[in-house]
């Protein structure tokens, strides 16, 4: 009896402990999410020029790099191979795409090297040679104030048009983040009728906000502005909740975006602090 009682008490205590541990774990991952780490859910693969890589901002050491005020995770770019240096642990390529030069490191996987040695005859891997063009997928790294790209994959470019397409794509994405949506450009531009034109001819993007130039605001702020501009409403404007559901954003994001727009006098509050309308003048 005593023994059984003791046993059950212990097991009860242990369960309590386990439950507490589980809760602790949950709260830890929650705080990580709030700190903006663990970007797996919002990983992007952004086409960039090497100049953009060199100009990328790092708010503080260990923070994610930003291009056009947007965090980058994976990047992709092209470049002409200027130099290849093979080290024991990695191969360093110097790539030049005409906008700048950057070092790209591909870590050597020892196991893979061995397996490649044995099957070298059968697998004809495309070769990376100096002065030929290559495409890189990787992550930007900073080490002792020097930037390099840790490559996941480097492949030779076989169709030279890839270079041209890549540069246009990088331009397009740059314009998307700095000047806003393709749709708003199209509507306000009136005559813009094809992706091709918008791809590089988006000069009219500046005037996409009712003839006023769009101040430098975040993508979320642009989205909110667009919703306010395009949704049917009376002179009271729209409530934050309403905007959030139309824009598929969460309320906090909308509130932040609203603060930005308010500070630029692009919107104003109507019946209460959380109901906004576009300020036209």
């Amino acid at each position: 009896m005593d023994y059984g009682g003791g046993y059950s008490t212990t097991s009860y205590g242990a369960q309590g402990g386990a439950g507490g541990g589980g809760f602790m774990g949950g709260s830890q991952s929650g705080s990580q999410g709030a700190a903006g780490k663990g970007t797996y859910g919002k990983d992007t693969l952004r086409p960039v020029t090497i100049k953009q890589v060199l100009d990328a901002q790092q708010p503080h050491p260990d923070a994610d790099f930003k291009i056009d005020e947007v965090e980058i995770t994976q990047i992709s770019f092209v470049g002409q191979i200027r130099n290849i240096s093979t080290q024991t642990t990695n191969i360093t390529y110097k790539l030049d795409d005409g906008t700048g030069t950057v070092e790209v490191k591909l870590w050597v996987d020892a196991d893979e090297m061995n397996s490649m040695d044995t099957s070298e005859g059968t697998v004809s891997k495309p070769k990376l040679v100096e002065n030929e063009w290559a495409r890189v997928w990787g992550r930007l790294k900073a080490f002792n104030n020097r930037r390099h790209v840790g490559a996941h994959v480097i492949r030779p470019i076989t169709d030279k048009m890839d270079i041209t397409y890549h540069l246009l794509e990088a331009t397009y994405v740059h314009l998307y983040f700095t000047k806003g949506f393709l749709n708003s450009i199209k509507q306000e531009g009136g005559t813009a009728n094809g992706n091709q034109e918008v791809g590089y001819g988006g000069g009219g993007a500046d005037t996409s906000m009712n003839g006023r130039s769009m101040p430098n605001v975040s993508q979320n702020a642009r989205t909110v502005y667009k919703v306010l501009r395009e949704s049917p409403q009376n002179n009271e404007g729209l409530h934050v909740q309403n905007i959030a559901s139309r824009a598929s954003m969460n309320v906090n994001e909308v509130l932040k975006a609203g603060d930005e727009l308010l500070s630029h006098s692009m919107i104003f509050t109507t019946v209460d602090d959380n109901t906004w309308a576009i300020l036209e003048f």
Partner: peptide
């Protein structure tokens, strides 16, 4: 560098245009 015979020069011109229009990334 030889770029072969399969180049779309309209796209190439677009890149030159973009280079100078949006020089901040080029």
């Amino acid at each position: 560098t030889d770029f072969g015979s399969n180049i779309d020069f309209n796209a190439v011109e677009a890149v030159v245009d973009a280079t100078h229009r949006y020089k901040e990334i080029f």
